[in-house]
């Protein structure tokens, strides 16, 4: 999102605080001096990770601090979840396993960390999925579970925290 701040010291820090307070994760900040406009304001681009339902609360918190939100960019693949897979992952066409998620259009495999102890022994991998919304994450996990069942792969899903 692009933020508009007053060009006074401490403003940027003040604007970033509500983001972390609300559980957002700041990925990058692009802060260009030459974008200072005549009204002595500063425009800052912030890329962040935040659950969709918390966005309104964040905008509200920013406004209270006198910090205008100029533009909210595309929200995509905000959900992230890691699972563990155990089985004959290579022999059962790992590329296909990953494709089945990537093909959905609403979710993708963003990371895969595989450990192969010995030939013929089952291998173990951590697979990280990203999806557009919590519902689509559930859907992606369901697809992965179906694929795993066909390929005799054990899937360990995470259990949520203190919901």
């Amino acid at each position: 999102m692009k933020l508009e701040l007053k060009d006074t010291p401490g403003q940027l820090l003040g604007a970033l605080k509500p983001i972390s307070d609300i559980g957002g994760n700041i990925i990058t900040i692009i802060h260009q001096r030459d974008q200072t406009t005549s009204e002595n304001t500063l425009k800052v681009d912030v890329v962040l990770e935040l659950a969709e339902q918390k966005l309104d609360a964040l905008i509200e918190a920013l406004r209270e601090r006198g910090c205008g939100v100029v533009r909210i960019g595309k929200q995509r693949l905000l959900q992230k979840q890691s699972l563990i897979m155990i089985g004959h992952l290579m022999h059962t066409d790992l590329t296909d396993t990953v494709d089945r998620i990537d093909q959905t259009g609403f979710a993708e495999v963003s990371e895969l960390h595989m450990v192969m102890p010995a030939i013929d022994e089952p291998s173990t991998a951590k697979i990280t999925l990203r999806a557009v919304s919590p519902e689509e994450m559930l859907h992606a996990v369901r697809i992965l579970r179906e694929v795993a069942e066909q390929k005799d792969i054990l899937i360990l899903e995470p259990i949520g925290g203190m919901e």
């Binding site: 890691s82 563990i84 089952p122």
Partner: peptide, 25 residues
């Protein structure tokens, strides 16, 4: 129902790296 008899040590290490572990729930 899925049991714990095919849980590998590698799975526990991968979980540990995320500050997690594996339990039968």
């Amino acid at each position: 129902i899925t049991g714990i008899d095919s849980i590998t040590l590698e799975a526990l290490s991968l979980a540990e790296a995320e500050g997690a572990t594996i339990r039968l729930i």
